[in-house]
Design a protein around this nucleic acid. Structure first.
Lengths: 173, 173
DNA sequence: GTCTATAATTTGATAGAC
DNA sequence: GTCTATCAAATTATAGAC
């Protein structure tokens, strides 16, 4: 049983859009690129997601849900919350060699359509809240941790060197 | 005496481009927008900077130089290196309520024209080197500090809340 | 659900007058 | 150094056939 009501095609479109946005940001991807990645025409992408805003918002929503589930699962397996968050960020970087989706969206927050900006913001609000509760951190400590993780992804991406992430996030606890 | 050979018009164009790029990234600004900001036509912008790549690279080059000078001056005034870097990042955020230029460029590094990607990378390489020398930090500690500062700007921009920067970077030394 | 075709706009860039 | 005019390409989005 699938967990959502989304079709396989919609999921494939979200996959392609996620990779493109993580590479170039909201204004750096197009319907035609996504369509070509998936193997259809751009009008077919519009059939599944009517506007660019709706598509990007759906990508961000799914990204946030997935991220939280990965962290949650790791914690249930016995990993400490802070280390679980570090591993989730690291996995996203090493697997795809791309920036955090909500990081690259949030960096251009003031230029985004409202629905997309709201979803990017929600990633941070929910992550910070989760860290405060599961790791018993103060608001300040949670903000510091999140900033370091996002910044480590950004620096590693800028330098094109994943080891920069590991160095920047060593001994985070 | 001016320190560079650039004309006033070129400087004004760089100012406008810097603000636009910090708001929306490389693919989020256009020659026509810059021209409108400055009060000329887009062909005049091309006269000063032949291509988008050349314009963005010039913006990044000037940004890095300015940033380094601000930090250097603060250190000479008696501020400790780590605090000087924190203040420089904070000033950029609070003054313009925008992301770090080389941060938003570096996040999309793999999608940038080579000259622009190189300039964004140089901001980090030079900053890290400077921190290692002036603050006697290990590579690891310098990377951690830079990641936290860039990430704090990113989180504050995403949340549209400058106080998030202060919280995330409290007691950095 | 996918396609062709197309509208309306924006983009980076160039030619040439002044 | 700035302008008008223009080009070729790309953009988001829609209409309608199948």
């Amino acid at each position: 049983m699938s967990e959502t009501s989304m079709s396989d095609r919609s999921e494939t479109i979200l996959d392609a859009a996620e990779q493109r946005i993580r590479l170039a940001g909201y204004s750096g991807f197009s319907f035609r690129e996504i369509a070509a990645d998936v193997g259809v025409k751009s009008s077919s992408v519009h059939h599944h997601f009517p506007t660019k805003e709706a598509l990007a918002a759906a990508v961000a929503r799914r990204y946030t849900e997935r991220f939280e589930k990965v962290v949650e699962k790791d914690i249930k397996a016995g990993t400490k919350p802070i280390e679980a968050w570090r591993r989730a960020f690291r996995q996203a970087l090493v697997q795809d060699r791309r920036m955090c989706l909500c990081g690259i969206l949030g960096a251009a927050s003031a230029d985004l359509p409202p629905e997309v900006a709201r979803e990017a913001k929600r990633f941070f609000e929910r992550g910070l809240n989760s860290l405060k509760q599961t790791a018993s951190l103060s608001s300040r400590a949670a903000l510091r941790l999140f900033a370091t993780l996002e910044g480590a992804m950004l620096v590693a991406t800028s330098l094109d060197d994943v080891s920069a992430f590991d160095e920047a996030t060593a001994d985070l606890g």
